[in-house]
Design a protein around this nucleic acid. Sequence first.
DNA 1: ACAAAAGTGTTGAGAGTACACCCATGC
DNA 2: GCATGGGTGTACTCTCAACACTTTTGT
Lengths: 222, 222
Amino acid sequence: MALEDYERPSVTTDLVVFSVREGKLNALLIKRGVVPFKGGWALPGGFVNIDESIDEAAKRELQEETGVKDIFLEQLYTWGEVDRDPRGRVITVSYFALVKDNEVELKASTDAAEVKWFDVNKLPKLAFDHDKILKYAIQRLRWKFEYTTMAISLLPKKFSISQLKNLYEVVFEREFDKRNFYKKILSLDILDEKGMQENVAFRPAKLYSLKKGAESRVVAMV
Amino acid sequence: MALEDYERPSVTTDLVVFSVREGKLNALLIKRGVVPFKGGWALPGGFVNIDESIDEAAKRELQEETGVKDIFLEQLYTWGEVDRDPRGRVITVSYFALVKDNEVELKASTDAAEVKWFDVNKLPKLAFDHDKILKYAIQRLRWKFEYTTMAISLLPKKFSISQLKNLYEVVFEREFDKRNFYKKILSLDILDEKGMQENVAFRPAKLYSLKKGAESRVVAMV
DNA sequence: ACAAAAGTGTTGAGAGTACACCCATGC
DNA sequence: GCATGGGTGTACTCTCAACACTTTTGT
């Protein structure tokens, strides 16, 4: 059979954009400016254009909503229940992204009456099956933190071990032993020393950056 | 914007169906009976109907190609490059499946001139981006074997530890120490004893079955 | 000198790895 | 009794977890 013989579904991407703000894990949501679920909160996202790859569509959406590019973005899962969208048959490919709070510029648009960060522990009711997608994304985020060096992409180029430790404590919602954390991270041989903090009101910390080539290494981080 | 304002891509599923045959890990391929790549080998798969979920489409394809149902089937990844299919814009959601060799009945169809098992180390050139998909599936398969009890779904209801060990050796292409393997598996507390082998020409093995509730447990298996 | 955060070592428990011999059965 | 695969224990190493004090800096 030829392509034309099949009725085609619409395909969208939905993004779970995470950031750490004021010591909490936050996710980006938009207030829908259009039906269905007009006025309800939902994940940012939109249709995949016919001449762009799904990854490109996700990247474009991320930039439209946050102004951010060149940041960690990874496909999560594809949701294809027949009735997940009241407008008709819509398949969505979900992605998750990590952005640095201070590099983000939120902008409303026609689709999004409002764009806002929410503490993942204080989420509103979400449109479509977006609560399921968000739960899935949090699991994946934790997994990524546990087994990859991805967390470091959320920190400045030079960072201290304690900044990294804070990040892990926010994502896993528990404390890590300082000595064990230092020992573990330093034993992985993934960091280069990059001098010291300056102008701090207490003992300056050593700064590190991720070693070249360690970006995609799979290591047990914690 | 409304759904109608977007030109829609076609959506297919592609299946990587694994089985263990004669001590080797095999994948199921079809010889394409239609253009493009007519006469070339490809993964089984097909279009997602407008009134079925993607999971249902994958399940249906699996049954059409192998006659198998109720077996391990899991979504892998969604491939959405613009030019991945010469017929036009086709997005494919890949799945991987595990089937028991002896429960499979291969059938050719209009789309598939021939259906055949291939040793994953002796694969022919594949159509589309199917070699990438297959590589991805093998990675995932190994990960699943390492961290879940999924391997057991490939064995008969009652099985011996050495059958399980053989399976792991095939998938990881290396040997496991017999004593350590027995010790590790039995220490996980995921098996129930189910009597002994009968009518074997040597010392009969103890048989086990997977404990109720252990199907989805995440454990380090090896 | 004090406030604030940085940095550092040891010990015990449990898990992984390496390694070789006896056992039960059918023929 | 022999061929075939089943089943078992010990010692070493390494990793993980628990635990508290000293150091450096700015004010």
